[in-house]
Write a protein that binds this DNA or RNA. Sequence first.
DNA 1: ACAAAAGTGTTCGATTTACACCCATGC
DNA 2: GCATGGGTGTAAATCGAACACTTTTGT
Lengths: 251, 251
Amino acid sequence: MVTGIDIPEGYDPKAFAPFAVTVDLAVFTVRQAALHVLLVRRGQAPFAGAWALPGGFVLPDESAERAALRELAEETGLSRERAAGLHLEQLRTYSDPERDPRMRVVSVAFAALVPDLPEPRGGGDAAEAQWAPVASAVSLAFDHGRILADARRRIGDKLEYTSLATGFCPPEFTLGELQQVYETVWGVPLDRPNFRRKVLATPGFVEPVGGAAPRRTGGRGKPAALYRAGRAAVLHPPLLRPAADSSEGGC
Amino acid sequence: MVTGIDIPEGYDPKAFAPFAVTVDLAVFTVRQAALHVLLVRRGQAPFAGAWALPGGFVLPDESAERAALRELAEETGLSRERAAGLHLEQLRTYSDPERDPRMRVVSVAFAALVPDLPEPRGGGDAAEAQWAPVASAVSLAFDHGRILADARRRIGDKLEYTSLATGFCPPEFTLGELQQVYETVWGVPLDRPNFRRKVLATPGFVEPVGGAAPRRTGGRGKPAALYRAGRAAVLHPPLLRPAADSSEGGC
DNA sequence: ACAAAAGTGTTCGATTTACACCCATGC
DNA sequence: GCATGGGTGTAAATCGAACACTTTTGT
């Protein structure tokens, strides 16, 4: 990185045109059997009036991770402590010189997972914010459409080999709820008996809640047992999604 | 990202302390049955004399990807065209405010894979450069030790479900060479017959070289058939590494 | 009683693993 | 001939998909 040794001659670091560094967040939740993402309405040009991913500048004395956490708390209205418990991971960095028409802006994108929260409102700035089904989130400001697509794919992939899915669930959840997360994100129905067995056979994925009333009744049907997220971050064995097959040969 | 709408009041983008943006490269190759990484010796403070990952500044009119490709070509001595054919992927961005003692530097890290090249020398700057076994690459400058560790893990993981391994091989290779790549990166021996079947059963992973002399004799032993990389980037089914087991329960 | 959701059991076929064995070449 | 690496075969164990069936609740 950095540093003298490989600076092309004639360049001085201090002389560089300044880069602005920002974070952009793709905050996902599952509600009403659909994957939703948090969007904010832009108030100024460029893209005034358009929807965009929440985000903001990285301050001079904070890391991108810290900036992302700060923004996450602001936009969701959660306390810093509660936000720190959410899943938040760096996606990748977008650095096309043309991505912002005003100046050179490099953006570190993050993906975050939250359980079904009351409403996006709460803290942060006065901007309009809302949960939107990802399917309906098209033509966002800047390159946010691409960021969202990348984030969505990454989340889907990581459901297979990590315990990410529990990040969409409340602290205690039923296996039915967990299965809904998978079905919603992947867009495919899963066999319930097999799903149950696989989850329970994966060490550290979920652990049963012991105690007084370890069951939840969601209206009709037999009350379900409650589970908590386990300590495992990666799943062995993985929970592979059904082959989208048709001999993709792909590239 | 960016932009007016969510700039904390009182801040003006132009007034921000400038960020320098750099790229750092973890360039891997397999030689002598060991995973090697390309290192350069630093000539100036800080960390003068220490080994570091190659890298450099992102220029005002290029993306991080372009900068990484430029650096890759410079450091390996390959032409821009040949370098463009190599596997080069963004890893993640490191942005700890303290990571460079001189000024605020945000670095976008990349991982690159090259076949066993003659020598690191060739083009680029006059800095000392060499291939070092990753096991012996400890205490690098800045946070490069961490970047290297992250890159190494990512490469190992991606061997399972992508055709990445062919990036370590020359244009035409034998299945024995491909297997060596897996064994070297994972550090485990694989069963040859089963490896062969799995690779051949994965559509688009490799394709046989037809033609006059489609075999290579590496000295002793039966000459092996030659293969080229196929078109598939992701492997269906994946080539899972043997369970490191001992009931990791892990986290 | 019936619908709805949770939970258990069982079967069948595909996949994986662990080997034994044959082939072609250099020394 | 023999060591070395390439390539094929196969039986046992394991895993996963599909689906029938029982249990417990609300209406």
